[in-house]
Nucleic acid binder design. Structure first.
Length: 417
DNA sequence: TCTGGGGTCCTAGGACCC
DNA sequence: TCTGGGGTCCTAGGACCC
């Protein structure tokens, strides 16, 4: 281990929006929003010109149009995002093999083993930024420091299109005046709670006894944040672990929960989730369904099965039972979202799924029903591989394209199983 | 004019076991 | 007789991140 700022955090600036401006020069220098429209939907990403007006990701389109009158809404080129981000990651991989990709557009790098090849961290960061700009055409900000937490904060401070290197002797002065909201793990709720105690900066937090912070934020969060504020961050750069859950959800607008609607939507979601599981040879025991009602109030219901499942129809049936439980116990009225998640994952060889156990129970993966269902799934998976994801499915064609953002966007957010 | 979709981790109570 | 304590799993909810 080196004592220098050998951890880099590289973060593409306003990634989706920057890609759109790269692809369409007429959009450069202008406030744009990817996704949504002035009439509805949500903004997925905003260019820096739009952010200057207060537009941000997750904001409803109508509000974005109001705060930024000159805003241009563009449809996303979702397949290009993955391709361009992968090219950036390849460049990072040329600088060190020790990369931890956090999401489509950001990654940690440990360059301690690359110093003899490329020079000091600041120089490596310079190479990184220049290559991404020259070879891909995108702006990327980099923070370099001795720990991941510091590097991540440094990259946020460096934005847009900048580089901040925190030398070990400057760490305290660097952290002291920054707002607590910049820390990883401090969201709106924690920020508000801390503010109520007069804690606004990371320096304030560092001066507050750990026991007091734990009382305000709870044991785990308080302990972690206290340590980070005191600049104690032992985390290493590691290759990303396997996913612990797989899920899918669909916003519905406002719909009366009829049996037909619930079955159709859950069938669609179950198919997305189960086919991803099967593609990776995984299965899960715990099924969770979330139902959102009016006013964003939601209920979850879950069940843990005796055996892991990865079959579309079985998952649909389990999810239906849970959804009706939640609907029955909810506030009544219309529903606005359905979600399925499968956790407690294990690796599942197909041959195990086909072992006959108790033929009468379709929840048993090896049952006669289970084998038949697995065969149906296998042929659907094959057709999908050949003809594309939308070529076959349980969902009626009338509903398939009616709700939500394009599937290409969903795929971007999927984690490696 | 009303809010997307993919995840991780923590807490707290209860069941159950030894 | 009237009661300990630890560990693990399950369920529901919630904060947070990209």
């Amino acid at each position: 281990m080196s004592g220098g700022p050998t951890i880099l955090h590289a973060d593409l600036d306003a990634f989706y929006a920057s890609v759109e401006q790269l692809l369409e020069p007429a959009l450069r220098g202008r406030p744009i929003a990817v996704g949504g429209s002035a009439r509805g939907g949500v903004v997925l990403a905003a260019s820096y010109e739009a952010k200057a007006f207060g537009v941000s990701g997750g904001m409803p389109g109508w509000r974005a149009a109001r705060v930024c009158p000159g805003l241009t809404f563009v449809r996303g080129h979702f397949h290009r995002y993955q391709e361009l981000a992968d090219r950036v990651m390849d460049i990072l991989g040329d600088l060190t093999p020790a990369i931890q990709r956090i999401s489509i557009d950001e990654a940690f790098l440990d360059v301690s083993g690359s110093l003899h090849l490329f020079g000091p961290p600041a120089h490596i960061a310079g190479i990184l930024r220049a290559r991404v700009r020259d070879e891909v055409g995108l702006p990327i900000s980099v923070g370099a420091a001795r720990t991941k937490h510091l590097a991540k904060i440094a990259s946020q401070v460096a934005k847009p299109d900048g580089l901040v290197v925190v030398e070990p002797e400057d760490e305290h002065t660097f952290l002291e005046p920054l707002p607590v909201g910049l820390m990883w793990g401090v969201g709106p709720v924690a920020e508000r709670r801390l503010a109520a105690y007069g804690i606004h900066t990371i320096g304030d937090l560092a001066r507050t006894p750990g026991s007091a912070v734990e009382r305000v934020l709870g044991h785990a969060v308080g302990q972690r944040l206290s340590a980070l504020a005191l600049n104690d961050d032992p985390r290493r750069v590691v290759t990303s672990p396997r996913a612990r859950s797989v899920g899918a959800q669909s916003a519905l607008g406002r719909r009366t929960p009829s049996p037909g609607l619930v079955r159709e939507v859950l069938g669609h979601l179950a198919e997305r989730v189960a086919s991803r599981l099967r593609a990776k040879g995984r299965a899960g025991r715990t099924v969770t369904v979330r139902v959102r009602f009016a006013a964003m109030r939601s209920l979850t219901r879950s069940v843990t099965l005796a055996e892991p499942i990865a079959t579309t129809l079985t998952l649909t049936e389990v999810a239906e039972r849970l959804a009706w439980q939640a609907i029955a116990e909810g506030p009544g009225g219309e529903i606005s979202l359905l979600a399925i998640s499968v956790a407690n994952l294990s690796s599942q060889r197909v041959v195990q799924l086909e072992l006959p156990l108790t033929p009468e129970d379709p929840l048993r993966p090896g049952s006669v029903t289970g084998v038949a269902r697995l065969a149906v799934d296998a042929s659907m998976d094959a057709a999908r591989r050949r003809y594309g994801r939308d070529s076959v499915g349980y969902l009626p064609a009338t509903l398939r394209h009616a709700v939500g953002p394009p599937d290409a966007f969903r795929e971007l957010a999927e984690r490696e199983l």
